[in-house]
């Protein structure tokens, strides 16, 4: 009893001695955290504020925290641009069809790979995984797609983005851990075949991983531009990101702009600043759907990383 008292007292003493260290530690981590959060959040916040502000203030640095000279001009100009509508429509087409197709393929394959009683699945998985680390490269892929007659069709964008081995591994790990052998045995005794078992029992138990897949694949379609840039030539098939690239990054000064700068520098300056406002508006319009949706489904994204990180 006395011994116990002693050790408690000793522990208290030690704790007191280290209180100062811990307070210092607390202060440092708090400062670091605030630093990280502010650094990440501020550029996003600035874009939103600037998209509602008079471009003159946005550019001269006088809006740092709150909108100034409130205007919706940027958004009006964005919606007048028909490229935005075409791009949005195409991106929705690619995202919806690609996500539906990709999720289906990945779930079916992931389930088959999760079964331990499927001869040949081990070696097949190795062949799949090999493609994660070694690829034929851009040009041979282009030639294959060209050979199949898919260049400049919507199929090129939809098909090329739909399956990723990483996603198959996530589904496989999830199902291998969720669907027990006993469940399978019980269902088999009840006369449930593989097909019925998958659709009636496995899928309802896999809602979480289905959500993870839908979100992962949808985000990759929404944000992707490179496949579309390589394989599409008609602008009426362009996804939003390719139009954004034109508007945000390729707007160079044309000859008439240079003329204008010489004749009326003030007007040219005004045009340049309002173009900036349109860019801010455009960034918000293109990113808002994902950023607004994401906090509600964050746990699924995180879950995907967790399942994927389990080795094997």
């Amino acid at each position: 009893m006395e011994n116990g008292m002693m050790s408690v007292k000793r522990a208290q003493k030690i704790r007191q001695r280290h209180t100062w260290d811990d307070i210092l530690f607390e202060v440092i981590t708090k400062l670091l955290l605030i630093f990280f959060v502010v650094i990440v959040a501020y550029p996003i916040y600035f874009i939103i504020v600037a998209s509602f502000s008079d471009p003159v203030y946005a550019n001269n640095g006088s809006i740092l925290l709150f909108p100034k000279g409130f205007t919706l001009m940027g958004y009006e100009r964005v919606f007048e641009d028909e490229r935005i509508w075409i791009g949005y429509l195409n991106t929705i087409i690619y995202t919806v069809s690609g996500t539906a197709l990709g999720t289906a393929v990945v779930l079916l394959a992931g389930y088959a790979f999760s079964r331990k009683d499927l001869p040949g699945s081990g070696i097949l998985m190795k062949l799949f995984i090999f493609t994660m680390y070694f690829s034929g490269g851009m040009i041979p892929l282009f030639l294959v797609v060209n050979e199949m007659g898919l260049v400049n069709t919507r199929w090129s964008v939809i098909l090329l983005g739909c399956v990723s081995v990483y996603n198959i591994i996530i589904v496989r790990s999830f199902m291998a851990n969720t669907i027990s052998d006993e469940l399978m045995d019980a269902a088999t005794i009840d006369g449930c075949g593989n097909g019925m078992f998958f659709f009636k029992i496995v899928l309802p138990l896999s809602k979480a991983v289905i959500a993870v897949m839908v979100l992962y694949i949808a985000v990759s379609y929404w944000n992707g531009y490179f496949n579309a840039m390589i394989f599409l030539t008609d602008t009426d098939k362009y996804p939003l990101q390719l139009f954004l690239r034109q508007i945000l990054l390729m707007a160079t000064q044309s000859g008439s702009d240079l003329n204008l700068i010489q004749q009326d520098p003030e007007l040219a300056d005004q045009l340049a600043t309002s173009a900036q406002l349109v860019k801010y508006g455009m960034i918000v319009i293109a990113t808002a759907p994902i950023i607004c949706l994401y906090p509600f489904v964050q746990k699924y994204f995180v879950k995907g990383v967790m399942i994927g990180s389990v080795k094997g």
Partner: peptide, 16 residues
């Protein structure tokens, strides 16, 4: 907050 930029597309990031 810190996970958020991951969902911004490359085009938008470079535009920013």
């Amino acid at each position: 907050i810190t996970y958020m930029p991951h969902f911004i597309s490359t085009v938008v990031l470079v535009g920013m």
